[in-house]
Structures are given as structure tokens and as C-alpha cells.
Design a protein around this nucleic acid. Structure first.
Lengths: 341, 341
DNA sequence: TTTATTTGCGAAACCGGTTGCGTGTTATCA
DNA sequence: TGATAACACGCAACCGGTTTCGCAAATAAA
């Protein structure tokens, strides 16, 4: 095991009595090498179990054939599906993916970006942190020429590839659906004021409210902590008073589903009788929850595929990503949690 | 953007009028460089935004600080949690992780192993395919000295690090629980005859049956396809006849949960009245399913952490992984799907 | 003061492929 | 048959750090 006498291009050259350069060119199927020599080289390479060294070739080519994928969370049906979509594409195109999880911490996001400046990856796919207070680290890496594509959670004022869903419309549709189901006091539970996609969902949500003359529009959006305990506390306080509590909620992220179901159970609030719920979620199990959860289902897999395609073509064709914005529409999957009882 | 005039060690050397070697040593805080020079180098490096080149250092050191993580699926609460556990550890130790998804195909697994022989990763963490008919590719890579750790789905006859749960006992406990709940005809739904962990679960399951003198033990294990349509067909045919169908099922993997719930709904079989169900699963939503699902919950996060720790210490300390087997016990989370009505 | 030792740094080989250029050989054409 | 072109391959620099070795100057010991 210790004697890793790996075979290099030099080994092959020595065995065949030819030069390194010739072996290298033969392996690349270069036109300036005869077929006879190529065959001999291939045979020897095979026999000696030759494997080209990633570092050596990367040193010259400055290409790693790897892409960084940065996500806030992985135990999440949206992000895991998106990653699967990414992997499907990158695998076909011969790219490797490096996964980084930020846990929604900008500090960790910054550390990751430091690591990526060593040429380890050829491009970056990222869905940014919830508390996205600063994006200098992103700009800095991009300034070195690193291609970067945002998916889902984007930084609005950085001009580069973006793949998102139709957030405004989705927020609008969600609210409209609840209103159509008879809700009079509709709320939006968000987890961040900074994320542009959540802002857009809120805008769409508010638009629907104002169009339908729902009066609590100004006081209808709540920021919920993602810390388990705080989260449940906040929701509990918001839902405790039967006279003040909403009769319809749009949940901005899947993460909040369990807390809300938990609190409703604890407070004996029945969904959908007392409270109608709709959630931005990709949960496979939505139909089998109790009650079945109405969702705004994002095309997570497709978003991943599109993002991966964009970054790959940016890398190989040196394609500019400015003004490349792809919008994959979400769909409303109506289930019992939001239906008239 | 095109002018990527990156600064190298040479740039710094030229600016300061010293040699490459000195700069390199200064950056490594070598004892043979004066503090004055080190400071000058650090300052210049900072000023010029110097970033060491991953390929150049890797070429010498033969270390990539990267670990491959190979899983059959990622949209799965067990595997995504395990990956999160892995990432927690590797991130702390300065390792990157490359994710590969096999979709349970040996062919893809083999392709991945070919890719990993170029020095791109320093070690491998893998949970093998369902149809694990051959493991030559794994042995071949290990023969080159590549450290490898199996987690959850292991190859029994390859001697290396393994992190698993107590599969026999879990299978035993699952069956015992159903029997205690009054089931007379208990079945095990598996997805593979080849996976040793499933074999062990089955063994434990059968042991419980025989100890309790359940008579259908010989005819109680069914292999279910993971193809959606075939899967539902098989389950439907197994559950159709009210006189022949089981009154208790142990589901070996999370993947089969939805099909079973779906078929039961379609056939109007009520869980747990007509059929009690228990599933090997890490689903966060188990409590909120209808009915809440009794699970054998594997310590997925911990399994990931342990596996990552093992591989890291194998890489850095050249620690041998033979006979390194870590068993993280699962727990039985009893919910309504298996309880006496 | 002389010798021995330590300190600080430069020169150059090295890691393993890649590539431009030059050269000798063979094929082509007038 | 001589000039030209196509072909096949070797040589050596190069990518950007790392590391060994050696040397000169500074310091310590004799």
C-alpha cells in the first residue's frame, strides 16, 4: 500500500523508448502522431494502469472540471432536488461538483469563497444565505473571472446568471387562493427581509390582498426566526388569540411547515377549518401529511438543471452571463390544508 | 475579465527582489526565513491578492484536501442528513467534499470510480448501490492506496472502515413491535437481496418471527422494485386480497413509504386498523403523516460524522482502516401507524 | 584571532503533463 | 531527379509551487 509506484507518462515513454511529449500527444490522439505509435502507447498505458494526474493537467490548463455548489441547507427537499438536477447535468458534461453548506451563515459563506479562489473549481452555483447582508466576497471572486450563477436565492444587484421561479406571481397566486377560499385575514410568514425572492413573494402577496381589498395588508407580514425554539414561540404568540389570529397563512419556506403544524396541534387549531395554510415547498410527502399540505411547488430539479447548464456553457464557451435570467414557473398544488371545510 | 493576470509566487519574488523559494518558505512560515522577510512577503502577498495555486501545490504534495462522497440518492432524508454530518466534520478539518449520485446503478458507480483515480480526492466515503453485484471497481481503487470508508450500505467482504447501524437488532425490534401489537402475518418489504444491511435486517426480522412462533416466516420477505409503476403494481397485488394480505409490514427503506401509503389509500386499506406499518426512515415529517409513521430512525447525522472522522484520520495519520467498524444504534419511534387501534 | 556553528537566502531540480518549435524521414509533384 | 510538402517525433520550456543543497555572512565558541 505504501509503495504507490504510480505510472506516469514518463514510465510509458521509458518503456517504449520514446519521448514524454510523444506519449502525451498520443494519448490526446493528436494528428501529429502515427497510428502505430498511438496503439503502442494506448496498449502500454492500459497495461501499466496509467491514470493521468489531475494536478499536472490542471496546472497547465487552469481547468479543474469541477463546480462549487453552495447551499444554505441540504436536508431540504428543494435544495436536495436542485442538487440532483445540477448533478444530472454536470455528470453528463464531465464536471464534478463540490458541495458546501452554509447553514444560512454569511460568515461561513465568506470562508467558502476564500477557499474557492485557488483554482479548485471552474465555476460557482450558489443560493445565498438568509441573512445576506453583504455580498462583497461574491463580487471579489467574480472579479477574478470566476463564472457564477445564482439559483433561487439571488443577489439582485450582481449582474450574472440567475435561475429563479416566478416569485411575485407565486406570492400573488398563494394569497389569491386563500382569499378565494374565504380567508379574511391573511398573513405571510417569512424568514428574512433581505432575500429578494422573499421580498418579491411578499410583493405579489400584498398585491393580491390590495386587489381584493383585504385590509390587514400593512400588518400581514411576519419575520419568523429559524431557530426551533424562538420560531415556535413566535408562531405560538401569533396564533394564540382566536380573535386576532389569521385565518390564512402563506408560508414562505418549507422549513416552517413543521413548526406551524406543531403549534396548531398544541393550540388545538384545526387546519383548514380554523386556519388555512399554503406553503412554498417541494415536499414529496405533502399529500400524505395530516392535513395534506397545499403547496407552491417550485421546479427544483429543473432549476438545478438550468443553473448547471448555464454555468457549464459559461465555462466552456466563455459565454457571458450578464442578462441571463431564467424563470421557471412554480405551480400551485391545492390540497386540503387550504380548502373550504 | 479576460486579463486574468493572477499573481503567483514569482510576482511577489520579483517585486521584492528575492527568489521564488524564499517567498514560498516565507509563506509557509519556515524557520529558515527571517521575520523581516516574512513580513515583507506577507505584506506583498496581501497587497497583490496572492492566492496559492491548488494544482501546483497538489502536484507536489499529492494531496487534494478533497473527499468523494458517493450515494445512491440525495433526495432522501437519510442520505441528505448523512451528508450534512459528513460536511460538518470535513469542513472543520479543511476538507472539501465532492458529491456523486449513482441512482442505484452499478454502471454509474463504476464510472465514478474511474474518475476518482486521477488524484482528485484523498479518500472516498460510499454507500453502495442496491444492485451491488460487483465490487471490483472498489477494490481496484483501494489497491492504489486510496482510503475508503463505507457508511450504511457496506460491502461485507472488503476489509476497510465501516459505519453502520445495528441492522439485525433493528429488524428484530421492528418485527417484535408489530407482533406485540397483535399482528399475525408480518411481512418485510425489501428492495434488494444483495445488500448486506438488508439481509441483516431480514435476519433480525425472521428471528423475531420464529421466536414468536409466527408461521409465515419462510414466505414473509418480498423484493419490491424501486421503479414507481412496478413498485405500486407489486404492492397492490400483495395487498389486494383481504384474506391473504399481511396485517403488518416492515418497510426496509424510506423510498417505499409513499407507494405503500398510496396503495393503501387506493385499496381503502386503513392503517393501522387493517395493516400496521413500520419503516426504516429518517423522515422529519413522520409525526405529521396521516397516519403518523412509526419509524426505525437511524442516526444518519452521526453516521456521517463518524464516517468522515474515520476517513480524515486515515488520510492524515495514515491510519489503517481494517477492523474499523463503528455501529451507531437506531431507535424505534412508535407512532400511530403501528399501534393497536 | 581562529574555528565552529547558526542563520538567511538563492539556485535548481522536481512534481507530471502540455505544447511550440525544430529536424530528419518519407511521400508528392513538376 | 530535384524541390517541396507532409509526416512523425524529440527537445525543451512551461505551468506554479516545494524542497534539497550549498554558500556566504553573522554569531558563538575556543
Amino acid at each position: 500500500m505504501i509503495s504507490q509506484n504510480h505510472t506516469t507518462i514518463k514510465t510509458i515513454a521509458a518503456k517504449l523508448g520514446i519521448s514524454k511529449g510523444t506519449v502525451s500527444k498520443a494519448l490526446q490522439d493528436s494528428h501529429e502522431i502515427s497510428i502505430a505509435t498511438k496503439n503502442k502507447v494506448l496498449e502500454a498505458a492500459n497495461e501499466l494502469h496509467y491514470k493521468p494526474n489531475h494536478f499536472a493537467s490542471g496546472l497547465k490548463s487552469r481547468k479543474s472540471k469541477a463546480i462549487a455548489v453552495i447551499v444554505p441547507e441540504i436536508v431540504d427537499s428543494f435544495f436536495s432536488l436542485a442538487i440532483k438536477g445540477i448533478e444530472t447535468v454536470t455528470q453528463k458534461k464531465g464536471y464534478h461538483i463540490n458541495i458546501y453548506i452554509t447553514n444560512d451563515l454569511v460568515s461561513k459563506e465568506k470562508e467558502i469563497f476564500k477557499l474557492l479562489s485557488d483554482g479548485r473549481v471552474d465555476g460557482v452555483l450558489i443560493s445565498i444565505c438568509r441573512d445576506a447582508t453583504c455580498s462583497d466576497h461574491i463580487k471579489e471572486l467574480m472579479d477574478t473571472g470566476m463564472p457564477l450563477v445564482f439559483f433561487d436565492r439571488v443577489v439582485e444587484d450582481i449582474e450574472t446568471g440567475k435561475v429563479v421561479t416566478d416569485d411575485f406571481k407565486s406570492g400573488y397566486n398563494a394569497a389569491q387562493h386563500l382569499i378565494e377560499q374565504g380567508c379574511k385575514r391573511v398573513c405571510f410568514f417569512s424568514i428574512s427581509e433581505n432575500l429578494s425572492i422573499l421580498q418579491k413573494r411578499v410583493e405579489g402577496f400584498k398585491r393580491a390582498l390590495s386587489e381584493k381589498h383585504i385590509t390587514n395588508a400593512d400588518n400581514s407580514v411576519y419575520q419568523i426566526s429559524t431557530d426551533k425554539n424562538k420560531c415556535q414561540e413566535t408562531i405560538t404568540s401569533l396564533l394564540s388569540d382566536p380573535d386576532l389570529r389569521p385565518d390564512g397563512i402563506v408560508i414562505s419556506v418549507e422549513l416552517l411547515t413543521i413548526p406551524i403544524y406543531t403549534v396548531c396541534k398544541a393550540l388545538n387549531i384545526s387546519i383548514p377549518e380554523d386556519l388555512k395554510v399554503i406553503c412554498f415547498s417541494n415536499l414529496q410527502y405533502a399529500s400524505f401529511l395530516s392535513p395534506p399540505l397545499t403547496t407552491i411547488t417550485q421546479p427544483a430539479f429543473e432549476i438545478g438543471e438550468q443553473a448547471a447548464s448555464l454555468i457549464c456553457s459559461a465555462i466552456t464557451n466563455n459565454r457571458s452571463l450578464k442578462n441571463e435570467k431564467i424563470i421557471c414557473p412554480s405551480q400551485l398544488d391545492i390540497r386540503n390544508s387550504s380548502l373550504v371545510y
